[in-house]
Nucleic acid binder design. Sequence first.
DNA 1: GTGGTCTAGACCACG
DNA 2: GTGGTCTAGACCACT
Lengths: 129, 129, 129, 129
Amino acid sequence: MIQIVTGDARPVFQQIVDGVRMSVATGELLPGAKLASTRGLAMQLMINPNTVAKAYAALTAEGLIESRKGVGVFVSEPRQRLSDEERERCLDAALQQLVTAIASLGFAPEEIHQRLARELAPLTLRKVS
Amino acid sequence: MIQIVTGDARPVFQQIVDGVRMSVATGELLPGAKLASTRGLAMQLMINPNTVAKAYAALTAEGLIESRKGVGVFVSEPRQRLSDEERERCLDAALQQLVTAIASLGFAPEEIHQRLARELAPLTLRKVS
Amino acid sequence: MIQIVTGDARPVFQQIVDGVRMSVATGELLPGAKLASTRGLAMQLMINPNTVAKAYAALTAEGLIESRKGVGVFVSEPRQRLSDEERERCLDAALQQLVTAIASLGFAPEEIHQRLARELAPLTLRKVS
Amino acid sequence: MIQIVTGDARPVFQQIVDGVRMSVATGELLPGAKLASTRGLAMQLMINPNTVAKAYAALTAEGLIESRKGVGVFVSEPRQRLSDEERERCLDAALQQLVTAIASLGFAPEEIHQRLARELAPLTLRKVS
DNA sequence: GTGGTCTAGACCACG
DNA sequence: GTGGTCTAGACCACT
């Protein structure tokens, strides 16, 4: 289930991308599972179909999902979907942003580790080729 | 020292904001210290002075720096500008984004903790009123 | 409705900020309400769109409004963004300025109270988390 | 005694103007009293003499003080130093700013009145022609 | 020389 | 059409 939060800083299409990525990462969506159709999801989320199409296009380009004409959109078999370099860059950016937030908000490093551990706990990470 | 990376996803003015924030957080810039002048930094970074002015304006609104016309821009005395709930909210958002990145990129939680610890090490947290 | 007074000591963008703040404070603009578009308000007030954008950016940083690219700018849900100490500081500064004005202009305290009461009457204070 | 607060939003010369106005309003400086010399005050406050000169010039233009060549600067005899219209404008501006601050900070009107009364109490207002 | 404001016009991202 | 960013250049206020 994907939810659109209007107050979110991320654009709508990005929220969809992140939502699908999370569902796949947590195992909620397994390889071969069928995603909601572009029009169906758009109607369900009450947003423009073009926005859903854009999100699906991004996920397809990334290799996480595949579309089969006339059938639907499916989660791909797990493999190295992004290059190592690309993954590094993404992780670095996310880490850097967290560190900046911590620094400017004056939180204690120990507290951060505890909270991160709590957040990370429910994640069932999938092995990637 | 602030560096502008053109390939960075963040806009230029945001990179300046983050750079100053980090410098203050690490103690590289102490309260009362004078920042580079708007025009001076713009020339040094080879960008438009208005871009620097925008970054400095954001930092001023945030309460991290203070500007005096005709004199310059200075680091403010540390104080707690945001409410506890707001700080909580900001930290949660940053953590959530990191978790999303980790999950969708398939990194191992242990590695994240190590990298975060390394990033956090140089932080000298400022006492806040 | 926001009005720009060219003879005003405040810069134009500040008049917009104050105008929106008052509209929200009086309940004229409720949470979730859509503000005039940047370009639309600029045309209406016969000023440069960047000036409106600057005012909206300030209000966004303040947490009073939220903007969604391609959609518009909206009044945020009320929340306590500033710490109690910071609110105290702001109020003190405003009070002090009024007292200075009163003292140096030779007004009678009773008159001030009456006028202040009249100004304060239309205020519908927002509940804050 | 005038104090310059570097963190103050007001420019230095304005702080001097306000300081003298307050001293006169509270009766600390009586008509005919001699002010500190331009150079003396500048040295005492560790600021540029031009800044003091600018403040004194503004106060002279306003009619609050008078300079006698080769003798010094003195507080003028009380009279209507500003036009009614001018006084109205100043008071309105100060009131409006206070109201905006109150509204956006979510303070209760009753509390404001109490605090204002407390601030106003020590003022010994001088009758003005 | 310092910062602050405003204008004008360009390009991008989003829906 | 929406907001966001950046550039370029002008003018003002302060020291």
